[in-house]
Simulated scan of single mutants.
Amino acid sequence: MLTIESLTHLGMGRVSDGQSLLPRVLPGEEVDVAQDGTVRIVTPSTDRVAAPCRHFKSCGGCAMQHATDAFVADWKQDIVVKALAARGLSPEFRPIKTSPAQSRRRAKLSGRRTKKGAMVGFHARASGTLVQVPECQLLTPALIASFPALEALTVLACSRKGEIDLTVTEAALGPDVLVGTDKDLTPPLRVELAALANQYGLSRLVWNEEPVVTINPPAQDFGGVSAVPPPGAFLQATTHGETALRGAVAEITQGAARIADLFAGCGTFALPLAKRAEVHAVEGESAMLEALDRGWREGRELRRVTTETRDLFRRPLEADELRHFDAAVIDPPRAGAEAQIATLAASDVKVIALVSCNPVTFARDAQTLVEAGFAMPWVQVVDQFRWSPHTEVVAGFTRK
Rank of each mutant, 00 (worst) to 15 (best):
Q236C: 07
V228R: 06
I252K: 06
G247N: 12
A264I: 02
L262I: 02
T239P: 05
G224E: 00
A244N: 08
V213L: 08
G267V: 09
S226W: 13
G201E: 04
A219H: 06
F234E: 08
P230Y: 11
P231R: 08
T238S: 05
A256E: 00
C266D: 03
G267L: 01
S226A: 14
A257N: 14
P231E: 04
V212G: 02
L262K: 01
G267C: 02
A248I: 14
F222Q: 05
V225G: 06
A233I: 11
P229F: 08
T253I: 10
Q254K: 15
I259D: 02
Y200F: 15
P217K: 05
A250P: 03
A250T: 13
D221G: 09
S203N: 03
P230K: 10
R258I: 13
S226D: 11
A257M: 14
V206H: 01
R258S: 15
N216H: 13
T239I: 14
P229H: 03
F234H: 05
G265L: 02
S226N: 11
D261H: 06
G201N: 03
A248F: 13
F234P: 02
F263I: 11
Q220E: 08
D261W: 09
P211D: 01
Q199K: 13
A233N: 10
P229T: 02
L205Q: 09
P217D: 01
Q236S: 02
L202M: 11
H240K: 13
C266G: 01
V213G: 00
T214W: 08
I259R: 01
V213Y: 01
A257P: 07
S226E: 12
P230Q: 07
C266Q: 03
Q199F: 12
